[in-house]
Structures are given as structure tokens and as C-alpha cells.
């Protein structure tokens, strides 16, 4: 809004004051709980710090330790990347494709179906169900199903076998990933004007794929970036789910993620400097991913 300030100096002062007062609560919280933590991690990553003795400067040694000396970190980093590379794009595509499909239905059907898909994300901690489903004895739902159909002869120890933990955690994560970005996509799709599609049909669009590429995706570009950011943020911060399903540390660290490893290093072993260095690496990976994805999405539909 331009030139909203009318009147003299006194009124301008009052306006500015009121604006700053309204901005202050959020700005303070944002500084204390977001900006300060990021700066603090960066600074602390160069120190040895256990919260009791005075911090000791150690330069880049934490970063060297991470890359060359810490097998567990490298495993958790590998897990996090596998995890992010699969669940990030899959969750992103699925939330768009489902929203796109739902958009064809009547409002009532659409409301019911979107509720169904949103439900697992909505109810939060319901992944306990999967713990029971995959439990290791013959009462576990999956085991008993496979046993009674004759695929296996004895119950499998799903959540304690490194071959199965990763696929299971990925599946449950995808089950819960139709969240904010899914709702945003549904809402965005509903608001593409029908006249756009009609004009497209006149211009010779033959099938739904052409319509998707030439009309829908370009109109949804901003929404896709939003949804990608949400998916990046959740794919890299996964930690509670694998801990709940497979415990920490999981069998041969098969599903431990960077975030679960750094909270262990920090809140259990009190190696705050090292945990901070890990956080910094994670922040950098996320920001770089975010920038690359932003560039890619701006190319969609060109």
C-alpha cells in the first residue's frame, strides 16, 4: 500500500510505533527461536562445548571428524539422503497428483475424499498402528496375513531387520505425507479459472496430459514451490517416526537419521559443539536443495 500515511509528523510517528508494536511479538520470537539458534549452531560448531566447562575453540575439527572419522554420522547422512530423495519427490508428486485427480469430482465427493487422504497427516501420532501391524510375533497383522496365506513359514522380525526397516519407514512417511501441501494443491487447483481450460480446448488441447502441462502446471507454479518447500522441510527433519517404529539406535543404524543422531549427540552425550556442526551441515543441505528446487520449478511448463 503506497502513501497510506496522511497528515503530519506526529501521525507518522504514531503509525510507525503501532506497526512496530504489532510486529514486535513475532519478530522477537523469530529472532530468539529461529535466527539465534541458526547463528548459535554456526558459532558453536567451532567449539568444544559440554554445557559445564568453558567452551574451547577447535576450529574445523568437528567437520573433519564428521566426514572422515565418524562412521555413524556417515550412515545417518546416507539414510537421510535416501529418505529425502525418495519421500521428498514422491510426497510432492503424490500430493499434487491426488489433488489433481480430486479436482475432477463434485464438491461433496471431493470434500469426503480429501478428508480421507488428509486423515493420516491430520491425526499426527497415529503411526503407532504400523508398529502393531509390523510387530514381530505372529499376532502382528502383516505377519499373520503372510503366514495364513503361506508366503512365510515363521514370523518375520520386520522392525529389527535392517533389510526391512527402511522400506517400512518410507512407506509410513508417505502414508502421512498428504498434509499441508496436499491441501494447498487442492485449493490452488480449484482456483484456476474454467475459462483458461475452455480457451485451451479451443486452442487445440486434445487430452488431459496436454491440459496438465500447458495450463494447470504453469498456473500452479507458485503453489508447487510452496508444496516443495514443505516436503523438503519434512523429508529432512524425519526423526520421530523411525525412532517410534525401529527405536534408537535402530538395528545397525539402518534408519537413524541426521536429526535423530544430532539430538542424541546433543541432549544425551552433551557434545553440543559436535551436534551444532551436524546441524550446520543439515541447514546447508536443506537450503541448497531449496534453491535448486526453486530453479527447477520455475522451468515447469515452459
Amino acid at each position: 500500500m503506497k502513501n497510506i500515511t496522511l497528515g503530519g509528523k506526529k501521525e507518522r510517528f504514531r503509525d510507525n510505533l503501532q506497526c512496530y508494536i504489532m510486529l514486535a511479538p513475532f519478530a522477537l520470537l523469530f529472532l530468539i527461536f529461529l535466527v539465534l539458534p541458526i547463528i548459535a549452531s554456526f558459532v558453536l560448531s567451532f567449539f568444544e562445548f559440554d554445557m559445564v566447562s568453558t567452551p574451547r575453540f577447535t576450529g574445523f575439527s568437528h567437520y573433519f571428524r564428521m566426514l572422515f572419522d565418524d562412521e555413524v554420522f556417515l550412515t545417518t547422512a546416507k539414510n537421510t539422503l535416501i529418505f529425502a530423495v525418495i519421500t521428498g519427490p514422491a510426497g510432492f508428486l503424490l500430493s499434487f497428483v491426488l489433488a489433481w485427480f480430486l479436482n475432477e469430482f463434485r464438491p461433496f465427493t471431493r470434500t469426503v475424499l480429501s478428508f480421507m487422504f488428509y486423515c493420516p497427516a491430520l491425526v499426527g501420532n497415529a503411526y503407532y498402528i504400523w508398529q502393531v501391524a509390523f510387530s514381530n510375533d505372529s499376532y502382528g497383522y502383516i505377519n499373520s496375513l503372510l503366514l495364513s496365506m503361506g508366503f512365510i513359514t515363521e514370523p518375520l522380525n520386520w522392525l529389527r531387520d535392517a533389510a526391512y526397516t527402511m522400506p517400512i519407514v518410507i512407506m509410513v512417511q508417505l502414508w502421512m505425507s498428504m498434509g499441508v501441501s496436499f491441501l494447498a494443491n487442492i485449493s490452488g487447483l480449484q482456483n484456476i479459472g474454467q475459462d483458461m481450460y475452455e480457451a485451451g480446448a479451443i486452442d487445440g488441447i486434445r487430452n488431459r496430459w496436454q491440459e496438465l502441462w500447458y495450463i494447470t502446471l504453469p498456473s500452479m507454479r507458485h503453489m508447487l514451490l510452496f508444496s516443495a518447500v514443505i516436503q523438503i522441510s519434512s523429508a529432512f527433519s524425519v526423526s520421530q517416526l523411525p525412532i517410534a517404529l525401529a527405536g534408537y539406535p535402530s538395528v545397525s543404524n539402518s534408519v537413524d537419521t541426521i536429526v535423530s543422531y544430532l539430538s542424541d549427540a546433543g541432549t544425551v552425550r552433551y557434545e553440543m559443539g559436535y551436534a551444532s556442526a551436524i546441524s550446520v551441515v543439515l541447514f546447508l543441505i536443506m537450503i541448497v536443495t531449496r534453491i535448486v528446487v526453486g530453479k527447477l520449478i520455475n522451468k515447469v511448463g515452459d
Binding site: S239, L262, S279
Partner: peptide, 8 residues
Amino acid sequence: FTLAIPQY
């Protein structure tokens, strides 16, 4: 989750 340590 990603900010857990400095927030702690």
C-alpha cells in the same frame, strides 16, 4: 526438529 539442539 532440525533446530532441536540450539533451542535446547
